[in-house]
Design a protein around this nucleic acid. Sequence first.
DNA 1: CGGGAACAAAAAGTCAGACTTATTTGTCAC
DNA 2: GTGACAAATAAGTCTGACTTTTTGTTCCCG
Lengths: 233, 233
Amino acid sequence: MSTPGRGLHGQVLDTLGPAITAGEYPPGSVLRTDELAQQFEVSRSVMREAVRVLESMHLVESRRRVGVTVRPKYEWNVYDPQVIRWRLAGADRPQQLRSLTVLRSAIEPVAAGLAAKYATAEQCAALTECALGMVAHSRGHQLEGYLVHDMAFHRVILTASGNEMFARLGDVVAEVLAGRTHHEVMFEDPDPAAVTLHVQVAEAVREGDAVRAEELTREITVGALQELDILAP
Amino acid sequence: MSTPGRGLHGQVLDTLGPAITAGEYPPGSVLRTDELAQQFEVSRSVMREAVRVLESMHLVESRRRVGVTVRPKYEWNVYDPQVIRWRLAGADRPQQLRSLTVLRSAIEPVAAGLAAKYATAEQCAALTECALGMVAHSRGHQLEGYLVHDMAFHRVILTASGNEMFARLGDVVAEVLAGRTHHEVMFEDPDPAAVTLHVQVAEAVREGDAVRAEELTREITVGALQELDILAP
DNA sequence: CGGGAACAAAAAGTCAGACTTATTTGTCAC
DNA sequence: GTGACAAATAAGTCTGACTTTTTGTTCCCG
């Protein structure tokens, strides 16, 4: 996935990024560029480029005479796909999964409502196809096939909303869905009710019924929240 | 604002970043590192660091033998605060403002609902104080004072939601609000109805009424959408 | 005429070393 | 104690030489 080994500095980031996001270096920790360069056995120029990237993610701050200090978590660029991947791959995974699912519950219903208004004929067709694919793979342990169509479904919704910010969450949602299938406890077969909801959302979007599309999608996301025991008591 | 002049590479980014996000270099354009270094009169190492940052924002892609190619907009990390600032400062401002306002309309109501459940006593107090400050500055051309309390209000709501992803949107929302006051056509005094809504949201949060807090905040964001003529016909 | 292998060129990538500059810390005199 | 001055430190910058990957071309053979 993503882009492994795009240069030495990228390989350094593959180690240093996860280490930082996992809290291995607590906030306020001070790193020295030269020392890191020695540890990773790369030249200072390569390490400097890596530090610049971490700096642009607000994971660290580089200051003269003091070094590279790790920033507190609340300053991180938590929407950076790379940061999200690092956190999902490490000890922070549960919290990351929860906050992303809450984010989904806010975004996706609104996106579905907008999709009902602005989706093109092609997008409606793609959506229906995805929903049918989900139905076709909803029984008999075809989890992988189901997942592919589920990811595609949500990606189309987010794209069809016409909002660039929503569209860019397609990868994130896909990663959450994939995580649920691969890492978390996944029931034998998907919940039939959820499958039906997806089909109905596709219908609502096709018919341009924004209110219904939003409401149905909200039911889907509520289901996702319940899976993680994030309830509304 | 932000951090101007954090090194030579930062100064380069201050020019190159806005130029790219403004579409000055169309997608697919190819830049050469050495050429850029000459243009900006910096060493290759500095320019390489700048390119690395742009690459981490998915604004460009650097490949051997071909150069640094500008990526299409739909691949940009549009949640990167730096990218948002660049776009807000350039020709993309209107579209950026619209997409951010739609994003707000999805996020803030949910955040307010969560805030009603999880806000601490201190946060409730801060919220009330902000709302009162808005009331106090709502008449007689005290736009700056009003803005300060408005920004603080929304920041507290997002933080009090307890969701790290929501909290990180505080800066973005603040920038949208500030932009509305400073750049866009701002009415003489704020809409009294909007002021009242903020006071009521503070009440609802204080009383732990999640449904009411969410609904009232939705009214606020609908107002923001209407200001930009983003309607629901 | 077509396809593939060898070759050449181009641009990013890497490294090493010398030098500069800002910032902190410590010291000393007042 | 306070202020200024000096030393130490780590990031920042520049330069030049070298390596590696990718692309495009050329040329030979089927």
